[in-house]
Simulated scan of single mutants.
Amino acid sequence: MTDLADVGPKVEDSAETVERMVETRLPTTYGEFRAVGYLDSRWGHEHVALVYGEVAGTTPLTRLHSECLTGDVFASTRCDCGDQLDAAMRGVVTEGAGVVIYLKGHEGRGIGLLAKLAAMRLQEEGLDTVEANLALGLPVDAREYDVAAQILRDLGIEQVRLLSNNPEKLDSLRRNGISVVERVPLLIAPNEDNLPYLRTKRERLDHLLPHLA
């Protein structure tokens, strides 16, 4: 675990666009969560916060997880997404309390499912994930995390221990008024299929992945 010297949040000027729509009990193989559903009026995206235990007014272990159909549902070994989601859910249960925010509209770093599959095809021809997106005329990473800050505030959370290797998630939460008091690494053992993907995240997107060395 890495402690962070947080000098205080830097709040961006942005309107609240997320509305809490529904809440229900969600028993899982990891434990029983509270599923809180949100609608983002900007894009029509439906997000869900999986809340374990009592988190309001605390500094919970928190994961911002970008949707990944191929990894989360189909267990693709070309990325580490499914393994990260599994580790995050297990982690918050072990902690006794925490939040996993599942962010829709983030497929393929925000380019969508079909474009992600097209980018995968280009990767088979030798491009890395950054080059493949650019070759399709698409952004390297189109994801935004301000919605996650709005969800956290709605849950009564103002500061978190962030379970992430992505510095942009940390920076975005701070810009949007959420204090990140600790970054907790989420390191997944690489395999033959995802090692190039992980190296690209480390070398071109500044993800903190020291275990690859």
Rank of each mutant, 00 (worst) to 15 (best):
V93K: 11
D128Y: 09
G91Y: 04
M120L: 13
D83L: 15
R90S: 13
H106E: 10
A119N: 00
G91S: 15
V92S: 06
V99L: 00
L122Q: 00
K104E: 15
A149W: 04
L138A: 04
R78C: 13
I111W: 01
M89T: 03
L85A: 10
M89Y: 03
R90P: 03
T129H: 00
E107A: 07
C79V: 12
V100Y: 02
L127Q: 06
G137L: 12
D141V: 05
A119F: 01
L114T: 11
G110R: 00
P139G: 08
G91C: 09
E124H: 12
G98Y: 03
L117K: 09
R78G: 13
A135D: 05
G82P: 00
D141I: 03
G126R: 00
K104G: 14
Q123T: 01
L85K: 05
G126C: 00
S76G: 13
C81V: 11
G91P: 08
V99P: 02
A148D: 08
V93L: 08
A88Q: 06
P139N: 04
L122E: 02
L117R: 12
V147W: 01
I111R: 00
R121G: 10
L122I: 06
R78Y: 12
E124S: 14
T94M: 14
G108M: 07
Y145V: 06
L134S: 06
G137C: 10
V147F: 04
D128A: 05
K116H: 11
L134A: 11
V99A: 02
Y145H: 12
K116Q: 05
A97R: 14
L103Y: 01
R109S: 07
E125T: 10
A88C: 10
R109V: 09
K116W: 09
E131V: 09
E131D: 14
Q123Y: 02
L136G: 01
L113C: 08
G105Q: 07
H106G: 13
A132M: 05
A135Y: 02
V147Y: 08
R90G: 15
V140Q: 06
E107S: 06
Y102K: 02
G126L: 01
Q84G: 05
A148Y: 10
A97L: 03
G137T: 10
A87R: 15
A87E: 15
L136I: 09
V99T: 03
A118I: 01
K104N: 14
C79Q: 11
E95V: 04
D141Y: 04
A135P: 06
I101N: 02
R90E: 13
K116I: 04
L85W: 02
G108K: 08
A118N: 13
G108P: 01
L85T: 03
E131F: 07
